[in-house]
Design a binder for these strands. Sequence first.
DNA 1: AAATAACCGGGGACGCCGTCTCCGTTTGAA
DNA 2: TTCAAACGGAGACGGCGTCCCCGGTTATTT
Lengths: 214, 214
Amino acid sequence: MSTIANASAPRLRADALRNRERILVAARESFCLHGVDAPLDEIARRAGVGNATLYRHFPDRKSLLLHVLLYVNQRIIDLVEKSLVEESDPFEALRGLVLSGVRERVGGLSPLLATEVDHEDPLLKASKRRMHEVTEQLIQRAHASGQLRRDVGPGDLMIAIVRLTLPLPGSACGGSDDLAMRHLEIFLDGLRTPARSELPGPPRTLGDLKDEFC
Amino acid sequence: MSTIANASAPRLRADALRNRERILVAARESFCLHGVDAPLDEIARRAGVGNATLYRHFPDRKSLLLHVLLYVNQRIIDLVEKSLVEESDPFEALRGLVLSGVRERVGGLSPLLATEVDHEDPLLKASKRRMHEVTEQLIQRAHASGQLRRDVGPGDLMIAIVRLTLPLPGSACGGSDDLAMRHLEIFLDGLRTPARSELPGPPRTLGDLKDEFC
DNA sequence: AAATAACCGGGGACGCCGTCTCCGTTTGAA
DNA sequence: TTCAAACGGAGACGGCGTCCCCGGTTATTT
């Protein structure tokens, strides 16, 4: 399933593998809903699994966090790669990224990166590097086509996606996808050429994001 | 200072009044930074005040929360009212609201409304009503001038302001004001006539926000 | 189908942290 | 100067999240 394979996995038993997947999904939902401090026991409960099982798979919160991030990142990368080859209109490809950002709850999950995850972890670094590559490509193509205003960079788009898809505290995770999409559509309109205003500050690159985002 | 006066205040001593103000400001910062669960003792410490003093002024977290919201709401209302009389260009008035939203950390504070505050509190209700009135006026004038696209409502603007000024978890409160302003500027460009796309769903009114926002 | 090893799950001990109060001390008001 | 109001630090209390233990269960292997 994941292109970045966990190399030396000692062959998990069938039910163990299934539980591992369940835990990852449950953790994603819980973290998205209750933040990074979501009780691990509740994640286990949501996964339909004993808490001991969770701790067996992921020794501590840090480890669980890392693997949730890897899991999610990979899904987004897959979507963007697909968009790069299948969508001929660069600006539509941009919209594709935005749409998948909404679907994958990027906003809810991205804050996890700002916490105690190990940014030196080789798997995470590789995942982030790949994410950077594909989004850069997306932006470059949109620029080249003349549809995207020149004074914005990849960092601007990524941050905006995160912000506009953040689950508003108090509302269910992804309970207002249509609203988010509405506002992202307005934002996209603002990104089109010709530019209607002068923006303060320089275009943001992905380097400006400094470990805080995908 | 506040137009909605706390009626039967039994005359606070000078230092008590000063401390009350300090606590409100510190609470605003802390809530903005660490969410609604920010430790009250830390708020007291940040205010340079003993914890007992905090509990003397505000018996419980709920009370503190309420008064922080009233405090902040009032400041925003004042700014918008000023903008309504002083700014002749309606779209510039809109930008004024956005700008003050950034300055007043609306994004960081608005989530507080989604928690255990009493939405039946008469002071809060009055404050919210007034906030609705002035923002409605702002939007109507922008619509009337023909500068604001017809398929957006006040609710769209308010939610976008909240979202785009949300403090990104892990970064200091208001540490990226310029970035937020940049993206709000792009969003404003998307709001201008003529509309560059068809938006999904109906224009959002303030009623659609249902207690979740100012 | 039986044996074995891996895996599961719930209960509960431990420790941390936030809440709130007590009381001796300080400070503003008259 | 006098008094009441306000202050602040320290600490008891309680809740909750983390993590381990161990008896039971399920998948694999021959």
